[in-house]
Write a protein that binds this DNA or RNA. Structure first.
Lengths: 247, 247
DNA sequence: CGGGACTAACGTACAGCGTACGGTAGCTTG
DNA sequence: CAAGCTACCGTACGCTGTACGTTAGTCCCG
């Protein structure tokens, strides 16, 4: 009752009943005023919720409640959850600011990659959206300029057309793989702890190299950003080699 | 009715009602015999479902129906969906067979990486599970031997302890990033088509390098496996450089 | 050969999800 | 002041995972 009040009932309060108020009272929100919603506001709250509670805890109902609004009000601005997620992802990607433009081509390329990596790891939940999206992830409108920039730098370094395209693909794959690992493991104390305990419990005779290198593996796992730069430099070394051969 | 028959009601048929039998008849399955289920059988069907219909279409109910069994019967063997997924993932990883052990250390390392990559891309749905798992992905029991092997090869190449650990991290990140991209994009005709159309619609004046390299980008995107090997060689080049410097 | 114990298979129910559909209220415009 | 438009919203439906308790097949013990 009250919940399923017939649509046209004039809502007679019937307060004369001696009952101790309505039972659990579903906290009936009053209708939000007319201008209380807009796409940007919705995305703000969505991103905050995603960052704070994570992707799994996110739901349209939770977002609506956070906004103090009925669930279906969100559908005035977004066709559904998917579209909302895509908009959130694009908003985050749009925050990419290309780093300074000084130094040699490889230094600038390095800085550009790191900027993308930091952008990703700064928004763990959004990165998950990115990884799951079927679209060609680095080809969103927002990311296009970063892509163009990196390709130009690779060509500036002297790489041929095919090599530039493929080197870009390599950097992009490594960057998203790294960001994913950092977000899912390096930045999670409980995952790190599990890693630590598992590595300590390994039978040394069956996995000699692994057991031997345990401390180093732990160290490199703990510091995701440093590990990313290390791998990036490994790839850049290969790219430079390529460039020098083309020259 | 029939569906919600009170538990202890003596089930008076009341067939004297002139109704034309029970209405839609929910296709009441008869109880499956006692030995019709076991963990391996469940995992077989789960993996087949995942490969055929994808992760999104998977549900406990669908799996049970596929097995010709009530939904809750699955819970006799797995605590829940998560545990079932983890078991499926481990089963796939356990299928890893180390490649032949001939050739120089870097050639063997290369072959080992490619084997892992192929293992991943062979099971798209499972790869998604891998990417989403919070655990340290390459540290599952099943993957431990591959990890040990790669670390040993890196040390055989002359890398120091820290370098070996970090080079391994690089290879692992790149491999999972590549497999993810391949599964989400390269192997999906509709995603490729979208990429093609988007790249053709780019304003050439704003993204000159990108528009210029469009054909090469398309080509490298279409062939995921080749692109992986290219990137792998780039990284191996860096690793060899490291090795020669340590010597 | 009966009967009790064990447990695999199961049905029901519940809370939560995304969202289609239609109602309602408040601003805007005539 | 009325009419129309549309932002906001309530309800309902079909789906999900799974807690809980029931049922029935099997085996063992007396």
């Amino acid at each position: 009752m009250a919940l399923t009040r017939p649509v046209y009932a004039p809502d007679v309060p019937s307060e004369h009943s001696t009952a101790t108020a309505a039972p659990p009272r579903p906290a009936r929100r009053s209708r939000a005023p007319r201008g209380s919603l807009n796409p940007d506001l919705i995305l703000d709250h969505a991103l905050r919720l995603l960052d704070e509670k994570g992707l799994d805890a996110f739901s349209m109902r939770a977002l609506a409640e956070d906004l103090g609004v009925g669930t279906m009000a969100l559908y005035t601005y977004f066709r559904g959850k998917d579209e909302l997620f895509r908009a959130a992802r694009d908003r985050v990607l749009a925050a990419y600011t290309p780093p300074s433009t000084e130094g040699r081509w490889d230094q600038r390329l390095r800085a550009a990659c790191i900027a993308v990596h930091d952008l990703f790891t700064g928004r763990p939940a959004v990165l998950r959206l990115l990884a799951e999206s079927t679209a060609n992830d680095d080809f969103l409108d927002a990311a296009t300029s970063a892509m163009d920039r990196m390709l130009a730098l690779l060509q500036e370094g002297g790489l041929g057309r095919e090599d530039a395209a493929r080197a870009y693909g390599t950097l992009s794959r490594f960057t998203i793989g790294s960001a994913l690992r950092e977000v899912r493991v390096c930045a999670r104390p409980e995952a790190l702890e599990m890693f630590r305990s598992r590595i300590a419990a390994l039978p040394r005779d069956r996995f000699p190299a692994l057991a031997d290198l345990a401390p180093e593996l732990l160290l490199s796992t703990e510091n995701g950003r440093e590990q990313y730069e290390y791998g990036l430099d490994l790839i850049l070394c290969g790219i430079r080699d390529l460039a020098s051969r083309s020259a």
